[in-house]
Design a protein around this nucleic acid. Structure first.
Length: 295
DNA sequence: ATGGGCGAGATAGTACATTG
DNA sequence: CAATGTACTATCTCGCCCAT
């Protein structure tokens, strides 16, 4: 049977011209090469070389094996190099799960320098999960989870990245701008625009309206932050977003922010990852980078 | 189902002598 | 001078048993 060593020997002898030189290049003795090739020739009962003076020349059968060596060996060598880079954590895909809709804008600022620092690492961002972000992390569907609501588990480590205030956002001329802060009952006649996620994941409900047993007149959902802010700037409704996001938005001149309640609603964004990080050495690099590029 | 320890047999490689 | 043959050794593989 032809094995990889036979292919390496055939390629080396063809390149060097003699078994002795080929043996040196493979860090073997000339006898070892002779044995290996003789065994292969005996197995198939066909000569692979003919002697041309002191040089060895491939027969037609030998050329066939050499062709195989040229096709297959580079693939072995390429894959081995790839495996070494995987082992070093310098190649692969970093899969990021988002449980924080507005953080997408911030994430883009971290991903750009990360991609530059790790040219062989791709980034995939997932926002929808069948069974939640934590299960996705456990099931190796994602490698990092961005969440403002960490659930304590032995197998998951959470790294706090930055704190932010969740504020009520309205157009500059909205009547509520006259108030120093917003009370839950102030929203009873308002149209609230949020991301299309379940109410249990919207801080404005869980930390503000629901505890006070209040609600809004109408609740609309929109996918993108940009459109939400344009709708609010146009006076079509109000929204609740991280303060930094509103301040960085190009509509910021047209908008006003007020705290949710007298004390405000403070949140922390966490990056969760499995404690057993196995192959992916670049998860820690991503977390370190995320702490540098805070809003 | 998985993994460790062990022994028997197979195999790759070396040293050295021989051959062409 | 380079390939081949012979004897030998170190290492690897495989199957088996046993513990977890």
């Amino acid at each position: 049977m032809i094995d990889r060593q036979h292919l390496k020997i055939v390629r080396a002898i063809d390149a060097e011209g003699t078994m002795t030189e080929a043996a040196k290049s493979l860090f073997l003795t000339q006898s070892a090469l002779s044995h290996a090739m003789k065994k292969l020739e005996a197995h198939f009962d066909v000569p692979l070389w003919k002697k041309d003076g002191r040089r060895l020349t491939l027969t037609q059968a030998g050329q066939s094996v050499l062709g195989l060596a040229h096709r297959v060996l580079p693939q072995f060598e390429h894959t081995e190099a790839q495996l070494r880079r995987f082992a070093d954590g310098k190649q692969g895909i970093l899969r990021i799960g988002m449980e924080c809709y507005p953080c997408f804008e911030w994430l883009l600022k971290v991903v750009a320098p990360f991609l530059k620092a790790f040219p062989d690492v791709d980034v995939d961002v997932r926002r929808a999960f069948s069974f939640g972000g934590l299960q996705a992390l456990h099931g190796y569907d994602i490698d990092i989870l961005l969440t403002p609501d960490p659930l304590s588990l032995d197998t998951i480590t959470y790294t706090p990245v930055f704190e932010y205030e969740q504020v009520l956002v309205m157009d500059k001329h909205h009547p509520l701008t006259e108030k120093p802060y917003i009370a839950p009952q102030d929203l009873s006649n308002e149209t609230l625009i949020t991301y299309p996620v379940e109410l249990s994941r919207l801080d404005v409900f869980t930390h503000f309206l629901t505890p006070a047993n209040c609600t809004v007149k109408q609740h609309k959902t929109i996918e993108t932050t940009e459109i939400i802010l344009q709708m609010v700037a146009a006076g079509r409704g109000i929204t609740a977003l991280p303060k930094w996001l509103v301040e960085e938005a190009k509509e910021s001149e047209l908008l006003a922010c007020r705290s949710l309640g007298e004390k405000g609603v403070s949140k922390t964004l966490y990056l969760g990852h499995r404690k057993a990080q196995d192959v992916l050495g670049f998860v820690d690099d991503f977390i370190a980078l995320s702490k540098v590029h805070t809003p």
